[in-house]
Design a protein around this nucleic acid. Sequence first.
DNA 1: CACATTTCTTAACTTAAGTGAACGAGTTTG
DNA 2: CAAACTCGTTCACTTAAGTTAAGAAATGTG
Lengths: 192, 192
Amino acid sequence: MQDILFDFISNYVSLTDDEKNALLSLDLFHSVKKGTVLLKEGQKTQDSFFVLKGCIRVYYIIDGEEKTTAFYTELGALTPHCVINKEPSDYFISCVEDSIILVSNADMSIEVNAKFPKFDVMCRMLSEELLAKQQIDFDAFKTSSPEQRYLNLLQKRPDLLQRVPQHQLASYLGIKPQSLSRLRARILEKKN
Amino acid sequence: MQDILFDFISNYVSLTDDEKNALLSLDLFHSVKKGTVLLKEGQKTQDSFFVLKGCIRVYYIIDGEEKTTAFYTELGALTPHCVINKEPSDYFISCVEDSIILVSNADMSIEVNAKFPKFDVMCRMLSEELLAKQQIDFDAFKTSSPEQRYLNLLQKRPDLLQRVPQHQLASYLGIKPQSLSRLRARILEKKN
DNA sequence: CACATTTCTTAACTTAAGTGAACGAGTTTG
DNA sequence: CAAACTCGTTCACTTAAGTTAAGAAATGTG
């Protein structure tokens, strides 16, 4: 499990053994059971999450309805909005599957970053990269229809369709579960 | 104009006069005429943009149609995707109005950041903040209808409705210009 | 100033998503 | 094991967005 983390980090900076040990000594790894809620609406937290194995999900409850807006799977990094802006969270985060998650506390990060400036550089590269990636995803969402979005998801993250209940996928695609059902039936018909 | 920049920066780090002068000596400010294209599809660039005055716009051309996905106005920062991933750009960037824009080259940034680690810290804070903000925007887009998105835009960025042609706003809202017209008429009717 | 172009609106028609309800399959739980 | 839930699908109906076309209003240009 540690290797997964260090392999990931090596894409950005190279760590000495000292630095690796410093990281490991922080006791960052957590096993989390399916269904566990990591963050609730209205709560504040200082924790960021990095998925080593499994899947976590971001969702709002609007007019009593769950609206899923994001899934984070292997190597996905999520810093909740409330960590940045210090406001109570607008959304929930929960585990879609039994998962292994790295949880890093903001205070702790400050310490580590002070000791090892490398981490700061890595964080900057990472968030710049994530920002650019998310911009592309947002653009693709804006410029395409629900059907195109579904086909695009099928291409880019086919695993999600297996791992995640369809009604959660539906709101992720910006539509209702019934519409997703219908849309899938429509696509199957076209193929034949 | 310089004050606008330094006021903005002071939200993140405090600069000494030396550092301010170092920044100013880089000749970053550019006046750009309405309609100027700053980046074309297929091009690569190392430049990031920061709007001091005016408005720039990101758009794709898909099946011969312009699809606008973002507007950057005063204090908006845009690092094109191609700066991060070194691939040719998928989109265009152009000036909606006569604008004053700070253009910062990636190589230059590396130099400056090496000399003044403070800038690195600021860039990290900025991109983390932008990432979190964009996530919220993306979530709001996914969880709402075109009409709600329009009303939301009216709340959050009323200036855009004045500055920007409606057919560009339409694709920004994920719909066709005719639908935006109709939607606006519908809303007016409801009020009366 | 007249002509061309761009921008916005309106209308009729088509297509797809939202809504409410019902049903069966699978899972959970008392 | 039976009752209660959850999940996905289907259907009939409503609502809103896409499409095509036409024309009015505003803007730009020779």
